[in-house]
Design a protein around this nucleic acid. Structure first.
Lengths: 214, 214
DNA sequence: TTTTGTATTGAATAATCATTCAATATGGGT
DNA sequence: ACCCATATTGAATGATTATTCAATACAAAA
């Protein structure tokens, strides 16, 4: 019956990281940002949604800023884990991998309208808060370079030489960012199916002989 | 010597619209958002930058919200005017028009890092402030449909049939959005030259016979 | 010069919020 | 049953900021 892990019996476990309340607060933060926007997200609302006191939320995360950062980190890690698994899956050939990547980038887990709203909120502040940039940038660099390497394999297997791997992967990445933003504007028009289709068509046009890009 | 247009002698001129202070405040708003972010933009800072009193800024625009809306409207109109001129230029053929559109979308006037920062700030709040959406959405719809029509002409003039005009224009629009966002992150890597080159290469790959897409 | 109407100021107000902290609750060890 | 350490509370504090408005400056008209 000991649901509440008040005592941290294992000294290896570090403060925040393993508390139920910790994750409850992060989830509540994401939900609140998604529902009301970053500007209108207050600790009081987050605490209420997480069903803890306002004072506790602040005590736990030391500051609002830190709570926001932790939430961004959580989203960022979740995303990273999802694409890393694909790059590491040895059962996939390059084409299969690209398709999985596309499907992941527009899966309901990763590209839900709520999560996109949170991403875009943080993106918009990146210029003013170096700490946000730090969290996002490194992972984006890895994603970019993995993607480029993958396209290189793809080019090698086909007779595609006009577009460089760099060009194709940059085009892909910017399309994803743009489509995510457009999902926010008009989720009806920019459905996940539409977005995936658009990108697959882009690849199909490049690798005309490959029938898996529908 | 009458620089200060206190009296509105012409009764046809409506309140806000034609005052020097009006534009000074809008410019100051854009600069402030670009420098500090939407969240940290206060009327006091904007007023200071515009060199009027804080009370005046509020009096003139009735509310902070209204000042922000007016600034968004200004940016939006500026953008619209720039692309509308291109669509209406009868000296251009479809290819020339597309090239002009690309160059406009990454011109220093339209795609300056400051202005992009402001755009992205507003975009990120679009889900929560219907008034922001209203301002952006209608113009974006017109831009989309004009773009699609233009690509239709292009497809007609070439032997390109695999990608539909809709697909090409949606891909273009999402790439622009994505690249703009990336300019914020890493302006060195995503230079205007790089972005334009990437997009032109996209078109060149589709319309292989057309040599103007460098 | 005096009057008059508008433009502009800047200090006061009131609301919102992050943060603090003394007080309380909780539950295991003795 | 009592103690003690830690978890949690919630009310108070102080800072920030949009908004208001009475007071003032100013320019033209008389």
């Amino acid at each position: 019956m000991n649901i509440n892990p008040k005592k941290i019996s294992n000294p290896q476990l570090k403060e925040q990281e393993f508390s139920i309340n910790h994750q409850k607060l992060i989830d509540a933060t994401i939900e609140t940002i998604a529902k009301r926007g970053l500007a209108d997200t207050t600790i009081a609302q987050v605490a209420k949604k997480a069903m803890v006191s306002q004072g506790y939320a602040n005590f736990r995360f030391k500051s609002k800023e830190n709570l926001l950062l932790s939430s961004l980190k959580f989203l960022s890690d979740e995303y990273k884990n999802s694409w890393q698994r694909i790059f590491e899956d040895n059962n996939l050939d390059p084409v299969g991998r690209v398709i999985k990547i596309i499907e992941n980038d527009f899966s309901s887990k990763i590209a839900s309208r709520n999560k996109i709203a949170v991403w875009v909120s943080f993106y918009s502040e990146v210029k003013f808060r170096p700490s946000y940039l730090t969290i996002c940038q490194k992972q984006d660099e890895i994603y970019s370079s993995q993607m480029e390497k993958l396209i290189k394999e793809l080019n090698f297997l086909t007779d595609q030489t006009f577009l460089t791997p760099r060009e194709i992967s940059e085009t892909y990445l910017s399309m994803v960012d743009g489509l995510w933003q457009r999902i926010l504007f008009d989720p009806k028009m920019y459905s996940h199916v539409f977005c995936k289709g658009l990108i697959k068509k882009y690849f199909k046009n490049i690798y005309t002989d490959e029938n898996r890009f529908v």
